[in-house]
């Protein structure tokens, strides 16, 4: 994992990425600007994701995880705007582009084909008026010049790939005829139908019950091995992170507060927020329900501050058990050990 503490790396030169890197987000700033009020939903986030690896983004509700992923896809809703930073992405051909600057037309060729996305709500993410087959075929026909028959064969293969029984019959069914877990499988089949290099999964298991969650995670892990895509996995559940990710970015109020290899971060969290999150799971391996996630969040006293009135300095300070005077000044992301960054003045006391 390549760690960039702040922006400024590689400016000036033609866009380039180290050969093993698929996606590199640099000092990304996404604000929602409406009249006089500005919500800094993502405020200087940097991370990089290697090919074939999984990077998890964790954080409480409202910390900016979805906005980060929608920014990468350039699917921000109206008042949302990229104010600064770069999103370097390696195309299939090997070229590197900055998604933050790409014209909408080129972006459209990337969405679905290069970068695919699955969402939290399997019940509503599929269009109720089209058959599942149509919706998968639509994606294939959009990006590849194949016949409808071919697309249908491909769609069926995708359903097989995500282990949906009787795929031929399922192709002609409508979403309402399927369970939530089944629909999420369909979403995954849809997302992977053009062999994307990057899959963004925004809380894909949150709405599902525990056993189904485990199945979906297993499926994603298996497909990653088979297809070799990178996954940006968004969740607020650290249990899930341990299951699936190699690296983790912990977000708080629009900023990264800690990032590093999952092993290192779990072994020795260097930010009181991460420590708080972890302390709430007695056994990470056992507790992988999202319900567990909810519980752990409640265990840290207080709430995420509203993005409108962030305290100057460390945003976590009002809830932090280790708070000191210095916290009125915003700490930078400090390298605490190899491949491990923390935005806490007292990282050494942890």
């Amino acid at each position: 994992m390549v760690i960039t503490a702040s922006s400024g790396v590689g400016t000036g030169a033609a866009l380039a990425l180290p050969p093993h890197v698929q996606l590199k987000v640099e000092d990304l700033q996404t604000y929602f600007i409406q009249g006089a009020s500005t919500v800094k939903s993502v405020d200087g986030v940097s991370f990089s994701l290697s090919r074939g690896q999984t990077l998890a983004v964790v954080g409480e509700s409202g910390s900016g995880k979805s906005v980060t992923s929608l920014t990468i896809m350039r699917l921000l809703a109206h008042p949302g705007r990229i104010v600064g930073g770069r999103v370097l992405y390696r195309l299939r051909g090997g070229d590197v582009v900055d998604l933050a600057q790409l014209p909408e037309k080129r972006m459209r060729a990337i969405r679905g084909r290069e970068i695919a996305m699955i969402f939290q709500e399997p019940m509503t993410s599929l269009n109720p008026l089209f058959t599942v087959g149509d919706q998968i075929m639509e994606m294939i026909l959009l990006h590849e010049s194949v016949s409808r028959d071919e697309a249908r064969v491909r769609a069926k293969r995708m359903l097989e790939l995500v282990e949906i029984p009787a795929p031929e019959r399922r192709l002609d069914q409508y979403p309402h005829e399927m369970s939530g877990g089944m629909r999420q499988r369909v979403m995954i089949a849809l997302a992977l139908s053009c062999n994307p290099s990057l899959l963004i999964a925004d809380e894909p298991t949150t709405a599902l019950d525990v056993t189904i969650q485990a199945q979906i995670l297993d499926l994603l892990r298996r497909l990653q091995k088979e297809i070799g895509m990178s996954i940006l996995f968004i969740t607020h559940n650290l249990g899930v992170v341990a299951e699936i990710a190699h690296e983790v970015v912990v977000m708080y109020a629009g900023r990264v507060v800690e990032q590093g290899l999952v092993l290192n971060v779990f072994e020795r969290p260097r930010h009181p927020y991460t420590r708080g999150l972890l302390a709430c799971i007695p056994d990470v391996r056992r507790d992988r329900t999202e319900g567990g996630g909810r519980r752990l969040l409640n265990a840290i006293p207080g709430n995420v501050p509203s993005a409108l009135d962030l305290p100057t300095g460390c945003a976590f300070a009002p809830r932090c058990p280790l708070v000191v005077d210095r916290c009125r000044e915003l700490p930078p992301l400090i390298p605490v050990s190899e491949d491990h960054l923390s935005r806490c003045w007292r990282y050494d006391d942890l």
Binding site: L75, R111, M117, T124, S125, M187
Partner: peptide
């Protein structure tokens, strides 16, 4: 217009 499946359609790369 704000329904999830509309977002899904956009994420497919559709115009």
């Amino acid at each position: 217009l704000n329904d999830d499946y509309v977002r899904t359609a956009r994420s497919k790369g559709m115009g």
